Amino acid sequence: MPNRPATAYKVLTSPQMADLEAGSFEGAPIDIQDGYIHLSTATQLTETVDKHFADQPDLWIAAVDLEALGDAIKWEVSRGGAEFPHLYGALTLETVIAYSPLEREDDGSIKLPVTG
């Protein structure tokens, strides 16, 4: 089994973040259509935002504890042959270890929420 990170990230709109803060997030329209919640690793996050959320205001980044989700996480091959973590089930606030408004570093990469 490849060495996989223990944390992944979900990009959320402000209304989706409000759902999560209320307890759980069932998925964006694309998640519901595909049957799972799309997550990205730290190294995949900037490309995900640039490709799927370009010019969208008021976005949030949630850091998700993959180990707490156990078997609900499946690593599946997606664009370019890369493995992405997919959550089969709802994202609950108790499995989110940090979240913050989407901000970029000076180099243009996405600033990760501060955990711990």
Results as ranks from 00 to 15, higher is better:
residue 19 D to E: 11
residue 17 M to A: 11
residue 76 E to D: 10
residue 3 N to G: 11
residue 115 T to C: 10
residue 14 S to F: 06
residue 52 H to Q: 00
residue 55 D to C: 08
residue 102 L to T: 01
residue 48 T to E: 15
residue 6 A to Q: 12
residue 95 T to K: 04
residue 98 A to L: 02
residue 41 T to S: 12
residue 13 T to D: 03
residue 61 I to Q: 05
residue 94 E to G: 03
residue 75 W to E: 00
residue 45 L to W: 06
residue 2 P to A: 15
residue 5 P to T: 11
residue 95 T to P: 06
residue 100 S to H: 11
residue 85 P to G: 04
residue 40 S to H: 09
residue 35 G to V: 06
residue 85 P to N: 07
residue 113 P to R: 03
residue 73 I to K: 05
residue 16 Q to I: 05
residue 78 S to N: 01
residue 27 G to D: 05
residue 63 A to C: 03
residue 41 T to C: 07
residue 96 V to M: 02
residue 108 G to E: 09
residue 30 I to G: 00
residue 80 G to V: 06
residue 42 A to V: 03
residue 82 A to D: 13
residue 106 D to L: 10
residue 116 G to C: 02
residue 51 K to G: 06
residue 13 T to I: 00
residue 40 S to L: 07
residue 16 Q to F: 05
residue 99 Y to I: 06
residue 25 F to Y: 15
residue 1 M to C: 11
residue 113 P to D: 00
residue 24 S to F: 12
residue 113 P to Y: 01
residue 33 Q to D: 01
residue 86 H to D: 00
residue 91 L to M: 11
residue 81 G to T: 07
residue 47 E to S: 13
residue 49 V to D: 03
residue 9 Y to F: 15
residue 54 A to K: 15
residue 45 L to Y: 04
residue 12 L to M: 09
residue 51 K to I: 02
residue 80 G to F: 04
residue 111 K to L: 13
residue 49 V to F: 00
residue 66 L to W: 07
residue 17 M to Q: 13
residue 97 I to C: 12
residue 61 I to E: 05
residue 68 A to P: 08
residue 73 I to L: 09
residue 23 G to Y: 02
residue 36 Y to N: 15
residue 69 L to T: 11
residue 86 H to C: 13
residue 79 R to V: 09
residue 89 G to W: 04
residue 42 A to Y: 00
residue 108 G to W: 08
residue 4 R to Q: 14
residue 3 N to I: 14
residue 26 E to M: 10
residue 55 D to S: 14
residue 27 G to A: 08
residue 25 F to T: 02
residue 57 P to S: 14
residue 69 L to A: 15
residue 77 V to D: 00
residue 88 Y to E: 05
residue 59 L to N: 03
residue 116 G to D: 10
residue 2 P to I: 08
residue 77 V to K: 15
residue 25 F to I: 08
residue 16 Q to G: 11
residue 20 L to I: 02
residue 69 L to S: 10
residue 22 A to D: 10
residue 105 E to V: 07
residue 106 D to T: 12
residue 48 T to D: 10
residue 89 G to P: 02
residue 61 I to M: 09
residue 46 T to N: 07
residue 97 I to S: 14
residue 83 E to S: 13
residue 47 E to G: 13
residue 96 V to I: 07
residue 36 Y to C: 15
residue 28 A to R: 09
residue 55 D to M: 10
residue 3 N to R: 15
residue 27 G to H: 09
residue 12 L to V: 12
residue 56 Q to R: 15
residue 30 I to K: 11
residue 83 E to N: 12
residue 102 L to M: 11
residue 50 D to I: 00
residue 76 E to G: 05
residue 29 P to W: 01
residue 79 R to M: 10
residue 11 V to S: 01
residue 8 A to Q: 05
residue 16 Q to R: 03
residue 44 Q to R: 06
residue 29 P to K: 09
residue 4 R to T: 13
residue 21 E to F: 01
residue 113 P to G: 06
residue 100 S to R: 11
residue 63 A to M: 00
